[in-house]
Design a binder for these strands. Structure first.
Lengths: 107, 107
DNA sequence: GCACTATATATCGGCATGCGACATATGCAT
DNA sequence: ATGCATATGTCGCATGCCGATATATAGTGC
């Protein structure tokens, strides 16, 4: 799973969001580290829908502008949890190695 | 940074390794979750060398077979540490959200 | 002797993905 | 009127992953 897809899923946890809202939410919850571009968003969203991790929720018109909402599926939630564990494990593996071999302490 | 590049850097922490050795090391330290393919390896390695995160170490001939070793640079080590923090933070953000909204507790 | 496997290097082409640029449209402020 | 924030979406380029392929040596099984 790509980092962008990972953050889209995370942004959708709890409540459905529309495309533009996801962009803002991703920027916020990543602390600005990841800026999801619109050119990326719809491609990612289409793929996630095709994989059954996300599904269309509803359409709203707010202030004359269309809002298309998406929500996380049960499977999307599970996949996200699995992926989060993976990432955490990867980070742990790297940190453990970096600690084991301090500079100048090469085997 | 891609997951493959991340694992190549991790595999090189502490001691220089040759290409084929990196493949085995990555498989081991990822618990089999990531299988780095040879078609991927050399591309990743070239990019890391170009970015100054990895550099050629030495060449050896063992059992009539050439072994080309690579080692992690100071910058490579720093980048890996930064990336590991990023991954850990991403995982934490996702887990925190998943815990906050349990199934059926939607806002 | 011959086939197969493991070790070890490297290249090539197809496919997926990320993203800048662009297109379109509304409401609000200047 | 001009521009900005909001909101949707498309297109093409560049990057990156990986299967397939090529080359070469040493050891094992038949």
């Amino acid at each position: 799973m790509t980092e962008q897809a990972f953050f889209v899923l995370t942004a959708l946890v709890g409540e459905p969001r529309h495309g533009y809202g996801i962009v803002g939410e991703v920027a916020e919850l990543s602390g600005g580290r990841v800026s999801l571009r619109v050119g990326t968003l719809y491609g990612v969203l289409d793929r996630l829908v095709a994989e059954g991790l996300v599904e269309p929720d509803r359409e709203e018109v707010a202030n004359g502008r269309l809002r298309r909402y998406y929500r996380l599926t049960e499977r999307g939630r599970d996949e996200l949890a699995t992926e989060a564990d993976r990432q955490a494990a990867n980070a742990r593996a790297a940190v453990a190695r970096l600690r084991a071999w301090r500079p100048g302490e090469a085997t």
